[in-house]
Design a protein around this nucleic acid. Structure first.
Lengths: 200, 200
DNA sequence: AACAAAGTGTACTGTATAGTATCATTTTAA
DNA sequence: TTAAAATGATACTATACAGTACACTTTGTT
């Protein structure tokens, strides 16, 4: 295999990512992608089975790049519990409410919500894995010695929902989110409510 | 005006609602709508400026029909506070996570998230009005005599998020939700966490 | 009855795009 | 150097659909 082959594949995926997110799935034509990448449509079709196949690879590529850093965040465990959660929360919130995740989520729910395994596999490789990280954290001694958590799965879901609030829905709709300072304030309140709800 | 004119308009809107939700915006053609309604494309164009204009009316029609019952629910105030909230929560959750709201939300975020006032007006006439109802309730004596709520707006957002959890995202993706019994259990826990987080 | 407004059926225009085919050109490996 | 594989440029096929034009029919009104 040529040295440039993998680079080219990656380049196509990156250009496709940008266009899909910017214009939506249906409104992004393969001709457009090729025009920006350079090369020809034949090459694209040699790499990817078809438009849907390309999108699936776009998805895998971005899920990997976007969620992995969040997993790491979920494992930070210094300072106070409150501060740990606040730090995680702000990063989690900003990652979830921004591209590429928001743009790709829009496409999955609008263009693949029926007759496709994409939503299920997106859910399992993305959000669900974040949940698992957080559940493990909530079960750790670090947490259990100051909070009374009977059902870690539930507590995790509640914590993440308190963090996201309606900001995720607003991001999906393309509405403007508060600035960083406001978000930081919000996140503190979310963590506070969570801690009080699960205090011993 | 003919007696049937208003009925015909409504019929077009209802058929369009179903097709838009079922197939998405781009995949629903006006020819299809006309074929099911009967009548001709000219008539459709006499009633509605174009496809987008039709969708906007579809939206208004369904927002009105779907959110209004939820407002009423928010005003139920009998029995215990806990029971009142649980009752509201279950109905709110089921309404939010089902069609037509889910299907229309998908379209708004995928097909109108840019260069359109649709998201903003959807947000204001839908979710925001529910928030306002709930904020008023949380400020009522009924609530303030048993809970300590400094910021009713925040408390409202947190409560509704605890109720929705990730079920709304799952519904958008077309993933299956738990059955009614499970949802009822979930809702009790959401209300419990909220009450504990805001207890005096 | 006569007229105008509302509605129908059908065909058409213009445009867009997924996917394929062909053939020339370049790159790589031996 | 040479042959095979990869890539590129371009054109083509088939299809779909928003929006328009137009001739004709129905309905309500005067």
């Amino acid at each position: 295999m040529r040295a440039s082959t993998q680079e080219k594949r990656t380049r196509i995926i990156e250009v496709a990512t940008e266009l899909f997110i910017d214009q939506g799935y249906k409104d992004t034509s393969l001709d457009q992608i090729v025009a920006i990448c350079g090369g020809s449509k034949q090459t694209l079709y040699r790499y990817f089975s078809n438009k849907e196949g390309l999108f699936i690879e776009v998805l895998e590529y971005n899920i990997k790049n976007s969620f992995d850093p969040v997993f790491q965040l979920a494992e930070i465990q210094n300072e106070s519990l409150q501060l740990t959660l606040e730090t995680f929360a702000l990063n989690y919130l900003k990652k979830m409410c921004a591209n590429p995740l928001v743009g790709l989520f829009r496409i999955i729910c609008a263009d693949f919500n029926k007759h496709s395994t994409i939503p299920q596999s997106f859910w399992e490789t993305g959000p669900l894995r974040i949940h698992q990280s957080m559940i493990a954290f909530l079960k750790s001694e670090r947490v259990t010695h100051s909070l009374h958590i009977e059902d870690a799965e539930l507590a995790c879901a509640q914590l993440l929902s308190l963090i996201k609030l309606d900001y995720y829905s607003m991001a999906l709709l393309g509405l403007a989110l508060p600035d960083d300072e406001q978000l930081a304030k919000h996140v503190k309140k979310a963590v506070a409510t969570f801690l009080k709800g699960y205090q011993k």
